[in-house]
Lab assay of single mutants.
Amino acid sequence: MTVRVDGVDYEFSSLEEAVRFALKMAKSKGAEVQLHNGTFHVE
């Protein structure tokens, strides 16, 4: 599972870890999280 934040990809071994990271980053940026074909994008 890959989480992309500001064009940088972060790899996670589990969906749970990836979701937690994506939500944490989105909250800190006041951004939204989108899921596309198994890849999260924080914008």
Results as ranks from 00 to 15, higher is better:
D6G: 05
H36K: 12
H41E: 09
H41F: 13
V19D: 02
F21Q: 01
T2P: 01
S13Q: 09
E11K: 13
D6S: 05
L35D: 03
E16Q: 10
R20P: 00
Q34W: 14
S13A: 10
M25E: 11
K29M: 13
D9W: 08
L35S: 05
N37V: 08
A22W: 02
V19W: 15
K24A: 14
E32V: 13
A22R: 02
G7F: 03
A26K: 04
M25K: 03
E32D: 12
Q34I: 13
T39C: 15
E32R: 13
R4K: 07
H41I: 14
V8I: 11
F12N: 00
G7R: 02
R4Q: 04
A31G: 12
S13E: 10
H41G: 07
L23N: 09
F12A: 00
S14R: 04
F21N: 01
E11D: 07
N37D: 10
T2N: 06
F12E: 00
V33G: 03
L35F: 14
L35A: 05
L15R: 11
F12V: 01
H41R: 04
H36L: 12
G30V: 04
V5T: 01
G7W: 02
R20W: 06
G30R: 06
V3N: 00
G38I: 09
K27D: 15
N37A: 06
R4I: 08
K27G: 14
Q34Y: 15
Q34E: 08
G30I: 04
V33M: 05
A26I: 09
M1N: 08
T39M: 13
F12P: 00
S28W: 14
T2C: 14
E11T: 12
G38Q: 06
T39K: 13
A18Q: 01
V3T: 01
G38K: 06
F21T: 01
K29E: 13
D9V: 11
T39G: 09
R20C: 15
Q34T: 14
S28G: 12
D9I: 11
V3M: 02
E43Y: 13
A31N: 05
E17Q: 07
K29W: 12
A31W: 12
G38E: 04
Q34F: 15
E43T: 14
K24S: 12
G30H: 10
